[in-house]
Design a protein around this nucleic acid. Structure first.
Length: 451
DNA sequence: TTAGGGTTTG
């Protein structure tokens, strides 16, 4: 195969033009900044594959497909816009799409973090075995380094880009968000925790409440310890996103902003669960990217006091409950979960998504006896007890079991035409919740309105 | 070789 200009790095534009003209396959050296990439995965052939898009010093973009024997030999993109050098690369066409193909037999690559080595452009953080920096004209490398230091990535907005508050609007979507945590939840299963400061919409639930089912607290099995949860934001929803690929080698420090392109979602027991697709692409964004700044500004406007603690979706608040004291501070359920103090009572706006026992005739509020309520807000879901004196107070104005049943149905969003509506939509209520020294939650100072 | 893709009413 013919190599064009050995040692020289060609511009993308030049390589495309030359490959168009040439009748025989030609190899090129290319260099640029990686702006988007797929997760590493097994190809349908014998190799592992990762695709990426890079931009060169003239602003041209090109996709590259990298095939290697081992998943560990694929490029690792660990920061926003690393510098990529590709040598002995073939340009191929598929329909109207043109892309670079990395062949493990004769191609090589190297990745540099220009921000980490501004003064040393010859030390890659990762290189394929065949890579030799001395085979490339260093003046070309320097020009790409210079370009990288001034490059400002700007996310192109399109109709697929949504915020978490728009979740469910389309089956496939893009998300611009901050990664707050990554957890390995099985051999090949990873969970990504992402946040953009907005509240995911409340979901409808199955009307058919299984007997005394307190519902799941997480959309998929994944237990996080309190120290991890304490690093999560307390306002806005943190979406759990399931990934069936090893995302560990791209794992960033907490707080990295990303654009996830082409993902989807599922729902489980009224909880959102995002899902990465084999075609999902990731873009690391610098903290000063304009769309990121817009996101942060919206968060600042929401404020962090009382207003910021009220679910975006709870206005107007139906008057189903009253509280007997307004002296407790407003909090989200995540405020409560991550609370460092031993004991505290707060005011929350939540939905009652389940109750155990379901049968009101089994309700008993003697001493420590009571019921378990499953409460959620845009930030979390918890089990809270309602017992003893607080339980008595909650139902103080509700005398008969028939009335109690009607009020509980109202609270759980069960429609009176039971057989016609398969879903229920619990209304928002205000309540007080106490966290005790054993980290149990209980509802208190709250009363159902008898009407 | 593999992937490629903004996605299916047959």
């Amino acid at each position: 195969m013919a190599m064009r200009n050995e040692g020289r790095i060609t511009t993308i534009r030049e390589a495309l033009a030359a490959s168009e003209m040439s009748r025989t396959p030609t190899l090129f050296n290319l260099g640029g900044l990686v702006i988007e990439f797929s997760f590493p995965r097994k190809s349908h052939g014998s190799d592992y594959v990762l695709t990426l898009t890079f931009v060169d010093a003239l602003g041209s973009k090109l996709k590259a497909h990298v095939f290697t024997n081992s998943i560990h030999h694929l490029p690792r993109i660990r920061s926003s816009n690393p510098l990529l050098l590709l040598t002995h690369i073939q340009i191929k066409k598929h329909g109207n799409d043109v892309y670079a193909v990395y062949n493990k037999k004769y191609s090589s690559f190297a990745l540099f973090d220009p921000k980490a080595n501004a003064n040393n452009c010859t030390t890659p953080y990762q290189a394929s075995p065949g890579f030799d920096i001395h085979s490339i004209d260093t003046t070309h490398i320097q020009s790409i380094f210079d370009f990288s230091l001034h490059y400002q990535l700007v996310v192109e907005k399109n109709e697929y880009l949504i915020s978490l508050k728009d979740l469910g609007r389309s089956e496939y979507f893009d998300l611009l968000c901050q990664v707050v945590h990554i957890e390995n939840v099985g051999a090949e299963d990873w969970m990504l925790f992402v946040w953009d400061g907005t509240d995911a919409p409340p979901l409808h639930l199955e009307s058919n409440l299984a007997e005394d089912d307190p519902l799941l607290l997480e959309p998929a099995p994944c237990l996080l310890n309190v120290s991890t949860l304490r690093k999560f934001p307390c306002v806005g929803s943190v979406l759990r996103v399931r990934a069936h690929v090893d995302i560990s080698m791209h794992a960033q420090g907490m707080g990295q902003w990303v654009k996830i392109r082409n993902m989807t979602y599922e729902t489980h027991s009224g909880l959102w669960l995002g899902r990465l697709l084999p075609t999902t692409k990731l873009m690391f964004l610098p903290d000063n990217e304009p769309t990121v700044l817009e996101c942060k500004r919206a968060m600042d406007e929401r404020g962090l006091g009382k207003e910021g603690r009220l679910p975006f979706w709870s206005n107007p608040l139906p008057a189903l409950t009253v509280i007997d004291s307004s002296s407790f501070p407003f909090a989200t359920l995540m405020d409560l979960i991550t609370q460092a103090e031993d004991e505290i009572t707060v005011r929350c706006v939540v939905r009652v998504v389940a109750v155990s026992p379901f049968d009101v005739e089994k309700f008993c509020f003697d001493g420590r006896n009571g019921i378990i309520l499953t409460l959620d807000d845009p930030t979390a879901r918890i089990h809270a007890s309602l017992n003893g004196h607080d339980g008595g107070m909650f139902f103080e104005d509700i005398s008969s079991d028939t009335f109690k049943r009607r009020k509980m149905d109202e609270l759980l969003g069960i429609s009176s035409e039971e057989n016609t509506n398969p879903h229920r939509n619990p209304p928002w209520i205000q309540c007080c919740i106490k966290l005790d020294a054993s980290r149990f939650y209980s509802m208190c100072h709250t009363k159902l309105v008898a009407s």
